[in-house]
Nucleic acid binder design. Structure first.
Lengths: 176, 176
DNA sequence: CGATATTTGATATGGTCCATAACAATTATC
DNA sequence: GATAATTGTTATGGACCATATCAAATATCG
């Protein structure tokens, strides 16, 4: 920004709200008046967070019939892929702190989706396994995610872009 | 779960768990034993959330000297770009609920970064403006973000990919 | 072996963010 | 001019995240 422009801006700004308000009121149709996002729409963190909220919202909507949150779905997926691991291992790979993982497992276990089993090798640890119901629910959940959730992303971005997006996000998650 | 089913599960699971544990112990180098992420690494929500956490973490680190959170930065940016708007307008464009916006503004105002001004048109509303200090801090914040934060993304993805990523995330945020 | 340290699941607790209800002051509507 | 709607605010509760701490079990080391 040039100096003169800055001066103009400053003067305009000191006269500030009143003038801006009048200018808006003089506009043809004075209903919506959306704010200018400006540089915000280029900020990685801003757009990333808003996209994440939208995706989670859609995920919850798709999973309404199964009552699974994204976090719960990730636990079921991980336990299915890695049976016989204990709470500490599963929690830490998901970035969940052990204390906070307890209530989460209490919930899944109370719904008979997974089970804690005392390890015979190390009687301190609880080994995690999916129940039959847990496997069935997870199977249905996967189908719902594929057909309703990820399919939505495909029709929005296209398959190639979808893969590129996942790859870039993974890179950020792992190397940033 | 029925009693009989529980008993079956318990037996099957203990066997599977022990088997898996032995299998891992027989592995060549038995140190880390990272879990298999499996389909999780392809889940949009999962990778999106983890990327967002990493980006926010890096943002806070870059902003340590200015003590600005991503949300605070977004408020300053929006108020700078749209002077003379009231709390409701600014909060709603950022997806912040008015009640929660109050404490946020209290904080920024107590640090003399922005100011609430009673509107003369509508004495209910408070018009938001950046203070001189607020403008100066925001200016420094922008430089920090550009040189330390977004630059990091550029060297990780490359400029073209960075723009493509922002564009796709924006599309998701707006059209998903 | 036995004393000490570490690990595991769990509880308690506090902080932050998000969401809703309700309120006084002000303005809009009829 | 009575009623409804809006603005900023407070109070409050829930969800999520982080730390300290504990008992039980195991590992470590003298």
């Amino acid at each position: 920004m040039t100096v003169s422009k800055a001066a103009e801006k400053s003067a305009e700004a000191t006269a500030k709200g009143a003038e801006a308000a009048r200018a808006r009121k003089d506009a043809p149709d004075d209903a919506g008046e959306a704010l200018q996002l400006g540089e915000l729409s280029e900020q990685l963190g801003y757009v990333l967070k808003r996209a994440q909220l939208k995706v989670f919202e859609n995920f919850l909507h798709c999973m309404a019939s199964l009552q699974l949150t994204p976090a719960q779905f990730s636990v079921l997926l991980l336990v299915e892929k890695n049976p016989g691991r204990n709470q500490t291992e599963v929690a830490s790979t998901l970035g969940i702190l052990r204390p906070n993982f307890v209530a989460m497992l209490d919930n899944l276990e109370s719904r008979d989706l997974c089970a804690r089993i005392r390890s015979t090798n190390d009687r301190r640890s609880h080994i995690l396994v999916l129940t039959d119901k847990g496997k069935a629910v997870l199977s249905r959940a996967k189908k719902l995610v594929a057909t309703k959730h990820e399919a939505r992303l495909n029709e929005l971005l296209g398959g190639a872009n979808r893969e590129a997006l996942i790859a870039m996000l993974s890179k950020i998650a792992n190397e940033f």
